[in-house]
Design a binder for these strands. Structure first.
Lengths: 191, 191, 191, 191
DNA sequence: CATGAATGAGCGTTCATTCAT
DNA sequence: AATGAATGAACGCTCATTCAT
């Protein structure tokens, strides 16, 4: 009966707008931004926000999920390139660099998630990442450049401890220091 | 043995009880614990808490200050032992291990400090740590085991990124991975 | 006749209810009544009160503003009647009587405003009153019944010092005493 | 048993210091100054303050009582001078001027008293004032300069409505306006 | 007696969440 | 489905008052 314009497409667009607004506002104003401010930044009213996400924890979890999916994509891309011949260590380095950058954008979101006990229920993205990283590490070990005791959990550990609240120069330095732990070779001097 | 009710002299003891309670409660229930809960955990009323610390930011800053002083003590002890002949790399390793342990107890507190913009005004502890670490690093470089480009800031960077919210086994693994970045030698396999 | 529960349109009605409740509660229980009590008296929750007025000072200022607007209306009405031929002294007397009555309802509110440093930002009501009173005084001087040195500030001074916390009989007596200061003629005996 | 210095004289001195401090602090920082601040300004601890005055209302009432006694003294002095031949109207004028000045120093105290419902229980000072003023008024009426319908309550009414929170110039103007209500003669022009 | 640390009810204000429209 | 006004528990903080020393 309704002859209004796009009914479902708008809903999806709203969801995206809300997720973006949430990430931006949390990054901008800290993990305690109000739901109203997020809604306003998304151009909707609070009620609409709550229609898409039943509470704040779920909203934050959804933002985290987006981030996790992004990381999984990166991991799979890195593995694809390694499978195509690129050196695995190089790909891992690139991957870690990308993740650190992505994490920096989500630093506040993680703090919010921690404060709210909000973690994604859907673990498929994590699994995708794990599988890709496992293969990537195998490649690297076969090539002899990744230390034989390195596991996927090690990568996660480093990712989890990345200095996401630091300026790019510091993040680069951190990457240099930390990569040494993955390889079989001593580290060269780095500025 | 004393079973009398807490007297005047206990004002000092109350301060300690409050600081401990603050650290515990924040660690336990996240950076948003109420002042009332902290007071209750310390066995005092809110008013007493506020007599000792004019506001939440100051309380959190005081907890951080305690932690920082502890770290400075560790750094100085490590330097003293190195000056007495102990290998510097060994002492740095011990120091980092200690700090990571101490940080684990203060993980939430740092989050709270960040959220409140609460940082200690007294920087002497930081300075003590910096001086001791600088000397320690010099020792290590002279002994040839610390990579020549390592600076005090690198140590701080690692300390800041320690996986303080992880179980001991993970923290140990992190330490092994990360120490490699400091040394001139490749890493041996570690469980 | 509508027996539905208060809808959207009632937001405006709520504002009025809150202003009335604020004036009543402050008058009844002094300038230190809690916002919660005011909200309860208005039949809303605190949150609603704060939706309409961002803080206590603004709420009190709004009550004052209402009062000021009322005074301005009175002043203009008096001036209109004087312009229509009514003796200016008579109108000033009526005006003062009205204002004293209105002030009595706002006695505590003024105390609260003073304590909170809350004063209306919109001064148009004051200006309206000033203009009307100035003209009224001119009329009276031309008619020879208002003392030639009287100014608008004198009226304000009297208004400000009205015994607003006294019973009507006292207020009437005060008016009689004080009016003599405005006129060119000695005062007749008054009960 | 105690061989300490002056025991009772100190108590009296403390009482005075506290009353002065109370008046000063309330005048300086408004009717909501804390008891601790008053105690500090008096150079004693809160406990001592509470030894002299069981609660804040009683303290404020005592300050008011001091003021009332002062007013009574003024009234009696004025009456004495009138009895000695000075014109009663002149003495009433002086009296009102003094009272307004004294009231200005106690403006905040009165606000505090109102907020706390604190009024002196001892009415002897008021009675002294009433008697003196009654006689003073009689003198004035006999001399023909005080309007025959004026009563002591009229004087109280004016005193109570004095613009105690206004600068001296305004208070002077108010006095000029208001005195007219007491006399049998029209008012001369006053700046 | 004086001291001042401790108490805890209460205040102004915020914000996740609900629900009438 | 979207809106945004309303809700009310909870928070950080204050201050009159008490009481152990």
């Amino acid at each position: 009966m309704t002859n209004t314009r796009p009914p479902r497409a708008d809903a999806i667009r709203n969801r995206t707008k809300i997720l973006d607004a949430a990430r931006n506002q949390i990054t901008l104003h800290g993990p305690n931004v109000g739901m109203t401010e997020i809604a306003a930044a998304a151009g909707v009213a609070v009620g609409t926000l709550y229609r898409h996400f039943p509470n704040k924890a779920d909203l934050v979890a959804a933002v985290i999920a987006e981030y996790t999916a992004h990381v999984a994509d990166d991991a799979e891309a890195a593995h694809r390139r390694a499978a195509a011949g690129s050196p695995a260590l190089c790909e891992i380095t690139t991957f870690l660099g990308n993740v650190v950058e992505a994490s920096a954008t989500n630093h506040g979101v993680k703090a919010a998630a921690h404060a709210l006990g909000a973690y994604p229920t859907d673990t498929t993205a994590e699994q995708r990442a794990s599988i890709a990283l496992a293969k990537l590490i195998e490649h690297g070990k076969a090539e002899g450049q990744i230390h034989p005791d390195i596991t996927v959990d090690d990568i996660y550990l480093l990712v989890a401890t990345a200095p996401t609240d630091q300026p790019p120069a510091v993040r680069t330095r951190w990457l240099a220091l930390v990569l040494t732990g993955l390889t079989t070779q001593p580290r060269a001097a780095v500025a």
